[in-house]
């Protein structure tokens, strides 16, 4: 009886995870976003527009502030290029450079690059139910199936109706909590539920974390293929 229910919960859990992926991942999306980074003396907001296809192609152009305007970032598979209009140069970031924080935020380039579907990486298990605000959530525990993942395990609070995560905790292999992401402003866009605000917090660091806000998200758009070429960076 016990085994059966564990089996069932694992099945449920993977189904839930698939539903989450269906909401969050898409073949193709275009969105504008703003990132608010709280520093020691001030906080600042950087806005950008991103085009993404699948999990391994994305192109981001920074729109403001003036110092970042025109900076572009191209990601193809495991490679990342940065372009700055000031220098008119395209620089490829590799290895260790990818571990640097993006624009001083609590996210590294690598964090941004690894957007494989949760269900591809993790095995899930339902471990409970909790209320977050007025939403009922199912708490899942995810454990990596693969070796090459940044976070060996996660706890993820999934809205029980909309199948959108409302809170996510990322753990080190040893079990230490490394990052916490809180989602809010869940809206329905083209038949998907999607959180428009995400707050990233590096749990080992002092600070208020980084707030990531999406606006104008659109799925399944016609994105010209040339956007994902190095030539497009210089445009």
């Amino acid at each position: 009886m016990f085994f059966f229910s564990a089996e069932l919960s694992a099945q449920n859990a993977s189904e839930i995870l698939l539903k989450v992926d269906r909401n969050l991942s898409s073949d193709n999306r275009v969105f504008e976003s703003s990132m608010t980074i709280s520093g020691k003396r001030n906080s600042r907001t950087i806005s950008s527009k991103t085009y993404a296809v699948g999990n391994n192609k994305s192109f981001t152009e920074y729109l403001s502030p003036a110092s970042e305007k025109g900076t572009k970032m191209l990601k193809l598979e495991k490679q990342l290029w940065l372009y700055s209009p000031g220098s008119d140069r395209t620089i490829q970031l590799s290895g260790h450079m990818l571990r640097q924080s993006v624009m001083g935020s609590d996210l590294s380039y690598e964090d941004m690059m690894d957007d494989r579907k949760l269900s591809e990486i993790y095995d899930a298990q339902v471990v409970g139910e909790e209320m977050i605000g007025d939403r009922k959530t199912i708490l899942l525990e995810l454990t990596a199936r693969l070796a090459d993942v940044a976070y060996h395990s996660q706890r993820i609070w999934v809205d029980a109706e909309r199948f959108v995560p409302l809170k996510q905790e990322l753990f080190a292999k040893g079990g230490k909590l490394l990052k916490r992401i809180e989602m809010a402003d869940v809206v329905k866009v083209q038949n998907r539920w999607f959180p428009l605000t995400m707050t990233y917090k590096d749990m080992l660091k002092q600070g208020d974390g980084t707030v990531f806000k999406l606006s104008n998200i659109e799925f399944d758009q016609a994105i010209p293929e040339y956007i994902f070429t190095k030539a497009a960076l210089k445009k």
Binding site: I46, S67, E68, S84, G86, S87, R89, I91, G104
Partner: peptide, 16 residues
């Protein structure tokens, strides 16, 4: 050559 660094505001900066 191009210098790439992060500014006092932590923005990514590239300059020749």
């Amino acid at each position: 050559f191009t210098m790439m660094t992060s500014s006092a505001n932590a923005s990514m900066r590239m300059q020749n």
